[in-house]
């Protein structure tokens, strides 16, 4: 493949530079630039003096942020579990497609959340642990929109149009729960203010709202 593509292309001779970085080392130090922090309109700002390596910002995150991420990982994991049932059981193509989409996007978000926690030295929930272990954490079972083991069983044993209907109903309920978790996050003083969690929670909110709307229309289309 590599060779054939290569030989097929009658490329011109092109000069390519692959070089190492760090080329802008100044020869001499210019005067130190100012760092200022303006005030509210009508007031004067102040000069601040950041030290090399220091940051001018508040702490990155709160305990509530960490809890939100840990819980949302488990919440997403259940969505993956539900979606994984669709290829074998769903009757309608658009249901299979929706399930696939949820699976892809939520799997990516789980990686993002794990990264977020790891980088901050926080505990990452172990998704491979048996279900009993989840219960010990005490979060999974309490989260909004989570299906009970009985409901999961009901979904797993359904097929055809019955699966389609249940899948839509349960997934909409599950998504509503995620929206509620976001709402709760933003209602905790100081929480949800870190850039990354603000963005992530906002995305969860908008993405899942769209999917709820779509699933609701699919449910109606079913009659």
């Amino acid at each position: 493949m590599r060779t054939s593509t290569y030989s097929r292309l009658a490329a011109a001779l092109l000069l390519v530079a692959v070089v190492a970085s760090c080329r802008s080392i100044p020869e001499e130090a210019p005067p130190a630039p100012r760092t200022v922090q303006p005030g509210a309109p009508g007031t004067q700002g102040q000069v601040v003096a950041p030290q090399p390596g220091s940051v001018i910002a508040r702490d990155r995150h709160t305990e509530a942020d960490v809890r939100f991420m840990q819980n949302m990982i488990a919440h997403h994991a259940q969505a993956l579990e539900m979606s994984s049932l669709a290829p074998e059981r769903a009757h309608r193509d658009d249901i299979r497609r929706m399930a696939h989409r949820i699976e892809v996007s939520q799997a990516a978000e789980i990686s993002l959340m794990k990264r977020w926690l790891e980088r901050r030295g926080e505990e990452v929930p172990d998704l491979d642990a048996p279900h009993g272990a989840h219960a010990h954490h005490g979060h999974a079972e309490l989260m909004a929109g989570m299906l009970t083991p009985e409901q999961l069983e009901e979904l797993a044993s359904a097929t055809g149009p019955e699966f389609d209907r249940l899948f839509l109903q349960f997934m909409m309920y599950h998504h509503e729960g995620a929206l509620q978790m976001v709402e709760e996050l933003f209602s905790i003083p100081g929480a949800g203010q870190e850039t990354e969690i603000f963005r992530f929670a906002s995305h969860v909110d908008s993405d899942q709202r769209i999917e709820i709307g779509r699933m609701s229309r699919m449910l109606n289309a079913d009659g």
């Binding site: 005030g39 910002a57 203010q193 870190e194 603000f198």
Partner: peptide, 10 residues
């Protein structure tokens, strides 16, 4: 973001 302040505070 919700962390933004009128006075540019951190």
């Amino acid at each position: 973001e919700t962390r933004g302040r009128i006075d540019c505070g951190t």
